[in-house]
Computed example of a mutant assay.
Amino acid sequence: MDLVKCMEAFVITVKTGSFAATSISLNTSPQMIAKYILFLENYLGLKLLNRTTRSQHLTEFGKQYYERCLFILGEIKSTKSLAQQFSQEPKGRLRISAPISYGQFNLIPVISRFMKCYPKVNIDMQLSDRYVDLVKDDFDVVFRIGSLNDSSLIARKLSDLQLIFAASPSYLAQNGIPSIPDDLKKHQCLIYQYVTPTKKDNFWPFTINGKLTNIAISGAFQSNNTTALAAAAIEGLGITMLPESVLNESIKQSKLIPILQDFLPPPRETHILYTADKQRLPKLNIFIEFMVNAMS
């Protein structure tokens, strides 16, 4: 016998006070309602109702079981509602935050495919290299690069981001090609300017003999924009360290040449983060799964 159907009959019986009224509500017979209640009692091994010829009352256990049934049936209804939401076409606005270069070079191609699949979803993507608070700044999802701080947010891992080193053919022809990281002391390095500057800004990470090593660098040009740094490298102003995705096209066109490839730093982890909300709308759930599938 259907356990949920029996629980539903029990709850309605408690509310209406009779098998006859419950049978009308469930479009069945009073005898069938009695069988539902009896099945529950046999299943549980305890009486739920004390019945007389004129009335029926909940047992002490029946009172507690009634409250649990209300909760369980409510959750079942909520689950059905969630399934119905997923069957609907996703629509509405999604507000997204991502680091500038990651958004430009990594996310835009994937988001464009997402929007072609789900044309009724509008994307509001805010690009910034500052740390944003997903809840306070009213974002649906944020993309983060690097190690994560402990938080109540859910993090889904995406493909790692690889930093590489490159310079223009003209710069390397004039200044020579560095063969080891220490050679950079003799070169102009194009320095990324972080939102919150630290002493680490003037160090680049390398993998030397299997270990992560920071090497001091210097240069006459610095910027807080990766596109500007890539353009400066193409113009021959020095050596740059940027994500591979930012430099790939320029390398293919021979505008830049990758260097020090035997000393690349470990890839940086990348995640998509969102709140642990059980009632997320279909547009957000579908977007998250789309991005994870496309970028993992």
Rank of each mutant, 00 (worst) to 15 (best):
V4P: 00
E8W: 00
A9W: 01
F10L: 06
V11N: 01
V11F: 05
T13I: 06
T16F: 03
G17S: 08
F19K: 07
S23E: 10
T28S: 15
S29C: 08
Q31G: 09
I33Y: 10
Y36L: 00
G45F: 10
K47L: 12
T52A: 07
T53C: 06
R54N: 12
Q56P: 01
Q56I: 13
Q56R: 11
F61Y: 15
E67V: 02
E67K: 15
I72D: 13
I72M: 14
I72Y: 15
L73V: 00
I76A: 04
S81F: 14
L82T: 12
Q84M: 12
F86T: 07
P90N: 10
G92M: 10
A98G: 06
S101D: 14
G103A: 04
Q104T: 15
N106E: 12
P109G: 11
V110W: 02
V110N: 00
V110P: 01
S112N: 14
F114E: 08
K116D: 14
Q126S: 07
Y131I: 01
V132L: 11
V132G: 02
D138A: 06
F139Q: 05
V141G: 02
V142W: 00
L148Q: 11
D150R: 05
K157R: 13
K157E: 15
S159F: 04
D160A: 13
D160I: 00
I164G: 03
A167D: 02
S168H: 05
S170H: 08
A173R: 13
I177E: 08
I180K: 13
D182Y: 09
K185Q: 12
L190F: 04
I191W: 03
I191T: 09
Y192M: 04
Q193H: 09
P197D: 05
P197S: 02
F203H: 10
P205C: 04
T207F: 01
I208S: 00
G210E: 02
K211A: 04
L212Q: 07
L212I: 03
T213S: 07
F221L: 10
S223G: 04
S223L: 05
N224Y: 07
T227A: 12
A231N: 10
A233H: 03
I234V: 15
E235V: 01
E235Q: 15
G236K: 09
I239E: 07
I239L: 06
L242D: 12
L247H: 11
S250K: 14
S250C: 07
Q253F: 10
K255D: 06
L256W: 02
D262Q: 12
D262N: 14
F263V: 08
L264F: 04
P265N: 01
P265W: 05
P267H: 03
R268L: 15
H271G: 02
L273A: 04
T275M: 11
A276Q: 08
K278G: 00
R280C: 01
R280F: 01
R280V: 03
P282N: 14
P282S: 14
K283H: 09
N285T: 00
N285H: 07
F287I: 03
F287E: 06
E289G: 05
E289D: 15
N293L: 05
